[in-house]
Design a protein around this nucleic acid. Structure first.
Lengths: 240, 240
DNA sequence: TAGTGGTCTAGACCACTAG
DNA sequence: TAGTGGTCTAGACCACTAG
């Protein structure tokens, strides 16, 4: 059953007790000294186990007092999203690449001046040769950046901006909505006006929190796979 | 600038180099021995820093070889969802509590037999006295559980099942869709048939991976706030 | 075989809490 | 003041990698 190192054994035992409500949210765990005695090991090893439990969200510590069981984050899910995988994209068609004068909304979204320019890229995404999504992206225009590459092959918004921003520190936000299709979108996707569409709005920020990209993806609901799972289930626990 | 403990200083320095592309995904970091020499500390302390970096998703290690920069998980977002907060619920109205014979779909969703019974709970959720969402929940019926409490006040699906399952190990999944409203739903929400609705389907599993609850939430798009953020941004780094 | 990461020991000093 | 967690040292032994 257990060839686990001691510190993981400790963490695993405590997790089980927490899950079985032996320790309830708000309860204090035994002190590291007590646990060290129980497991016949040193406090250092116990601390390592408690640190693990902390980083996995089970407990938190108060200096000088002890470790306490956290309230589980019932509200938090892990959502997987990218333009290609949310749909099963098999083919893409470039509709437009342009440098445009931003609208009022674009100025606000990208926090730029009316006088600046914006790159507009529009794609039609196909799944099994059926047009299923309309992808619209806006990027602040810098003379430095060549945009020819955009015309060659399809890239997700993070892929596009990743070249000009630091890797892990790009902040991304999504807003998910259900919308009525515009007549023009209906034509593009060959659907009726009453067919609801998913709209996924994506906004990217650089490490200084300045918007560097904005996108709207309109997807036929019947081809959209948007799924989220609770965050604890993919923690290194038991796996099925 | 830095009263950080050594191990966090190490982690922070490495993060910055990774973000600035000093180390690129796939690159090997300096060994713990080298870093210990650089920072004039012991390998133990360096290891602690590297462990931190690992648990934050920046690097992973291969035993006997070294630490390597990971590919950032561009696809992963943190989504916040619960029935109450996704909308700004100000009032709730119980529509129905019943014990029903499951439909074919219910049997499949909850993995139960045709002969078993299911608790059906329906609520209407109001925001500022406007009906904005229709909430339908299904729970496998056990004679043990009293269901009177369901009629007293509104509870989210996780809140309901939390009483009978272990805390952190409940697995939850969401599926997000855009749907046309049924005529009956239109009447409930007082909307036109062509107004698209968000449908959020929630399914809960216990620690043995058995479904213990299923819910469908139909929300007026204009009152639904479904937002997700990239997972790295809420890591303990800089915060704005 | 030299070097790497993974774990652990037995201590130390410190900041913090609470009676 | 006793007990707690947070950090760190200077070592040890092990499993693993790669020449």
């Amino acid at each position: 059953m257990s060839n686990l190192p001691i510190y993981l054994q400790v963490a695993s035992d405590l997790k089980e007790k927490i899950n079985q409500r032996g320790y309830k949210p708000g309860d204090m765990l035994p002190s590291a000294n007590e646990l060290a005695a129980q497991y016949q090991t040193t406090r250092t090893t116990i601390q390592k186990g408690l640190t693990t439990l902390n980083s996995e969200g089970y407990v938190s510590s108060i200096h000088g007092k002890g470790y306490f069981v956290r309230q589980p984050e019932e509200t938090k899910y892990t959502l997987f999203f990218n333009e290609r995988e949310c749909i099963a994209v098999t083919r893409t068609k470039l509709l437009q690449v342009d440098i445009i004068t931003p609208t009022q909304e674009l100025c606000e979204q990208l926090r730029i001046r009316k006088s600046s320019r914006v790159i507009l890229i529009r794609w039609l995404l196909y799944s099994e040769d059926i047009p299923v999504a309309h992808d619209v992206k806006y990027l602040p225009y810098d003379r430095g950046k060549p945009l020819v590459e955009a015309e060659i092959h399809y890239a997700t918004l993070p892929e596009i901006v990743a070249k000009h921003a630091s890797l892990f520190s790009i902040k991304k936000t999504l807003r998910i909505r259900a919308v009525k299709a515009l007549p023009s979108t209906c034509k593009l996707l060959n659907i009726k006006e009453d067919q609801p569409l998913m709209m996924i709005e994506q906004k990217l920020y650089n490490e200084k929190n300045i918007p560097i990209g904005w996108g709207q993806l309109f997807i036929r609901d019947d081809y959209c796979n948007l799924v989220a799972v609770s965050s604890y289930s993919n923690k290194p626990e038991f796996s099925f």
